[in-house]
């Protein structure tokens, strides 16, 4: 898809975050992903871009959809994909992150996809290995492929991103999805709002160029995109918000609150959803929900990211 004779169109060896990507880089990945959608829609889903390459999924945090999505993306591009069972590996026996990285590096993988509970852990690992590293989520920092798949979904449904108003609602404080989306959507010219109780807002978030709302009515007013975030169960019980009941009443997206947004506003959620906590079933399953499409775009985006990084692999 890319002309190997020229300078690589995607100038980065790793994908560690949206931060550091130019609008051009992002658009390049989105265009690549757009083309990759067809890969998964055919009977013959196999490509040969990564044939002979090894991709390791290194998920220190449990994940279903992201890990499966990367695994499929890797396999459809012809790579050998290995899922590291971190829970039963030597990591559990006390091995440090760097030792794990060095060990894996010695096995000569081409791409490592990493998720880790600590912000910055993926960057640390990237410095210690020779292969390409993809951040599949580090703590509350970044989750770049999620933001890319969200952007692709928006672009396909709205035809553009520039000039749209996107309201990201819920637990911003603990959300890497929110941070990556704020960076990406802002970079592409969308107006980004965050809507959340103060207890779930990172201090100083307005300096990231977003408008802050603490009320759903005001926050959704005139929004084109309503992006809901998951509220972790352990955060519903009084530490950050009083209860799931109160959270749903004031910050959960139901039909009544969705009415504040534009009539053609679309609803997104990175999943997995908590029905009746941050989103009502009628909305999650309703005609304006893009939640299932997001999952499909997830595979396409990850195919695109792997393809883009493949250009930099030795002998690539």
């Amino acid at each position: 898809m890319v002309n190997p004779a020229k300078e690589p169109a995607f100038p980065h060896r790793h994908l560690l975050g949206i931060e550091g990507l130019s609008a051009q880089d992002i658009s390049f990945l989105l265009d690549l992903a757009e083309a990759a959608i067809e890969v998964s829609r055919q009977v013959e889903k196999k490509r040969s871009t990564l044939r002979g390459r090894t991709l390791i999924n290194l998920f220190f945090e449990a994940s279903t959809r992201t890990q499966a999505s990367f695994e499929l993306a890797g396999k459809r591009l012809g790579a050998d994909v290995m899922n590291m069972p971190v829970a039963t590996s030597s990591v559990k026996k006390g091995e440090t992150l760097i030792d794990t990285a060095m060990t894996l590096n010695a096995m000569r993988p081409d791409i490592i996809v990493v998720r880790h509970a600590q912000a910055g852990a993926v960057h640390l690992l990237a410095k210690k290995v020779d292969c390409a590293v993809v951040n599949a989520g580090d703590g509350a920092h970044e989750h770049p492929t999620q933001a890319l798949l969200d952007a692709l979904t928006i672009r396909r449904n709205k035809g553009r991103i520039e000039g749209l108003t996107a309201a990201i609602c819920g637990d911003i404080l603990h959300s890497r999805v929110a941070r990556s989306n704020i960076l990406l959507l802002s970079a592409l010219g969308a107006r980004v709002r965050v809507v959340s109780p103060s207890t779930l807002l990172p201090p100083g978030i307005e300096r990231m160029g977003v408008e802050v709302f603490r009320d759903m009515r005001a926050g959704l007013e005139g929004a084109d995109i309503v992006m809901m975030l998951r509220l972790q169960r352990e955060r519903m019980q009084g530490g950050y918000v009083p209860s799931a009941k109160e959270y749903f009443r004031f910050f959960g997206l139901d039909e009544a609150k969705l009415c504040f947004a534009k009539p053609d506003a679309l609803v997104m959620h990175p999943g997995p959803i908590n029905r009746g906590v941050e989103i009502d079933s009628a909305v999650a399953d309703g005609p304006r929900s893009l939640i299932r499409e997001q999952v499909e775009m997830g595979v396409a985006v990850r195919i695109a990211v792997l393809e883009a990084l493949a250009q930099h692999l030795p002998n690539g």
């Binding site: 207890t199 019980q237 009084g238 530490g239 918000v241 009083p242 109160e246 009443r249 004031f250």
Partner: peptide
Amino acid sequence: AGLDGAEIAEIGL
């Protein structure tokens, strides 16, 4: 909640 000084009460409700 419960005046226990630990968890936020349902202030909105």
